[in-house]
Simulated assay, not measured.
Amino acid sequence: MKPSTSRMLTRIKSVYMFINEKGTVTTQELVDEFGITPRTVQRDLNVLEYNKLVISPAKGKWTTTKRKVKMTS
């Protein structure tokens, strides 16, 4: 796996864990927490949403779904 792919997957996992811990977060909170651009946050959220791990209950807000996730390091 390319280092950039590994870095991206690690970041997406961190984003998911942050949302799961906080309950509901805004896109801006993710930008501030991870120091990445809004576009990068949106791409990461799109991956999580595609895999049915997060949903957006309101514009710009995100929360995790009830889908079970097996975390590995």
Results as ranks from 00 to 15, higher is better:
13 K>A: 15
58 A>K: 13
60 G>Y: 12
42 Q>M: 08
27 T>S: 14
58 A>Q: 13
4 S>I: 10
16 Y>K: 07
68 K>C: 05
18 F>W: 09
20 N>K: 15
25 V>E: 12
48 L>R: 04
36 I>N: 05
9 L>P: 02
32 D>L: 13
28 Q>T: 14
24 T>R: 13
59 K>N: 07
52 K>Y: 04
51 N>Y: 09
66 K>E: 14
48 L>A: 04
21 E>P: 01
50 Y>S: 07
3 P>R: 03
61 K>D: 02
32 D>C: 04
29 E>P: 03
17 M>P: 00
56 S>F: 00
13 K>C: 10
43 R>Y: 10
36 I>F: 07
64 T>Y: 10
53 L>R: 07
11 R>E: 03
38 P>G: 11
62 W>L: 06
72 T>N: 11
18 F>I: 03
22 K>V: 03
7 R>H: 11
44 D>V: 00
48 L>Y: 03
63 T>L: 02
11 R>C: 00
59 K>E: 05
44 D>F: 01
15 V>I: 15
33 E>C: 06
27 T>N: 07
47 V>I: 13
12 I>C: 01
35 G>M: 08
14 S>N: 15
61 K>T: 15
46 N>W: 05
38 P>R: 13
49 E>D: 08
50 Y>H: 00
1 M>N: 08
5 T>G: 07
4 S>V: 07
7 R>S: 11
18 F>A: 12
17 M>W: 03
21 E>C: 02
57 P>A: 03
65 T>I: 09
41 V>A: 03
24 T>V: 12
39 R>Q: 14
52 K>S: 09
15 V>T: 13
48 L>H: 06
34 F>I: 05
51 N>R: 05
59 K>H: 12
59 K>P: 01
72 T>R: 13
15 V>H: 08
36 I>W: 05
19 I>C: 04
20 N>M: 13
6 S>R: 15
4 S>D: 07
22 K>P: 01
66 K>Y: 09
49 E>T: 09
32 D>V: 04
70 K>L: 09
14 S>F: 12
14 S>W: 08
65 T>N: 06
30 L>S: 12
70 K>W: 06
44 D>P: 04
13 K>Y: 07
71 M>T: 11
39 R>V: 10
32 D>I: 03
45 L>Q: 10
66 K>T: 13
48 L>E: 06
51 N>Q: 01
27 T>F: 02
36 I>Y: 11
68 K>G: 05
47 V>R: 11
49 E>C: 01
55 I>F: 02
18 F>N: 09
62 W>P: 00
20 N>Y: 12
25 V>T: 14
17 M>A: 12
67 R>Q: 14
39 R>W: 08
65 T>E: 05
28 Q>K: 15
14 S>V: 07
6 S>C: 08
